[in-house]
Amino acid sequence: MTVTTMTDWTRARPQPNWLARLFDYKPFLVVACLTPALGLLLVFLTYPLGLGIWLSFTDTKIGRTGEFVGLDNFEYLLSDPQFWSAVFYSVFYTAVATFGKFALGLWLALLLNNHVPFKSLLRAIILLPWIVPTVLSALAFWWLYDPQFSIFSYLAIDILHIRKTPFDFLSTIWPARWSLIAANIWRGIPFVAISLLAGLQTISPSLYEAALLDGSTAWQRFRYITFPLLLPILAIVMTFSIIFTFTDFQLVYAITRGGPLNSTHLMATLAFQRGISGGELGEGAAIAVAMIPFLVAATLFSYFALARRKWQQGEAND
């Protein structure tokens, strides 16, 4: 009879099979992990962008393969007053709407950062304009701005008796421009307010208590504590907001389609109108490509504004 002891038995070392060995092979792993991401980027980002840029150098029309025409499209646009009007309105629209969104959004965030009853419900309500599909809210605004059935006109004429005629929101140039900006501000506030609220909540309450004891007024607490500490987040949110606003399409296209007299065309809507509706793919692409310098500028702004400030550097052992 043999007695089996521990020394007779050696633990079998598991031999990895070919698949396990393959996945342990680093070059294979790198390629396997990168391919899906790179593929998606190439197909959905690089290719359309490259195609757009290529088209802008051709005279492609719908139904006709174009030929390379160099900078002809851009030269034509430079002398096109309608293009310059779209550039002007894009910049104006972005500047005014961003200012409005941040003024109101910051104000709202500050309000919500206080102890208010039904805080979470209020926050949910505030997010609504952002959740609703843009086209849907655009339709609602279209209705609000309707020359005949606008509720504002109804209020002013029939309830308050301060006007005799309905408001003219969309049929003359400047009122139409301002109306679109108002709609964009309404849509953009939630994003700004909620992001800034998140930023506000990272500020330690004891800083406010310390400032209170240091003898600060409410304005001084905002000026010296809240604002500087919020600045890093403010810069990020503002960059995003500027990019979103500058490339806006849906609101304008759904409410005015660029009218009246093409005065409310943004670069995006003009590119669409020329390229798709008008069939001039090359020209439309050129307008779209002309947006790139503006977007690069916004991104550069973010790059510098997002750079860590000096006070954020160093070890945080707290």
Binding site: A210, S216, Y224
Partner: peptide, 28 residues
Amino acid sequence: DIAMVFQNYALYPHMTVFDNMAFSMTLA
């Protein structure tokens, strides 16, 4: 007319030591 030292110190992170200490005088 009191001054308080907090458990987490409550130093203003975006101000230098000098500005932190001078803050009450800056306000005044």
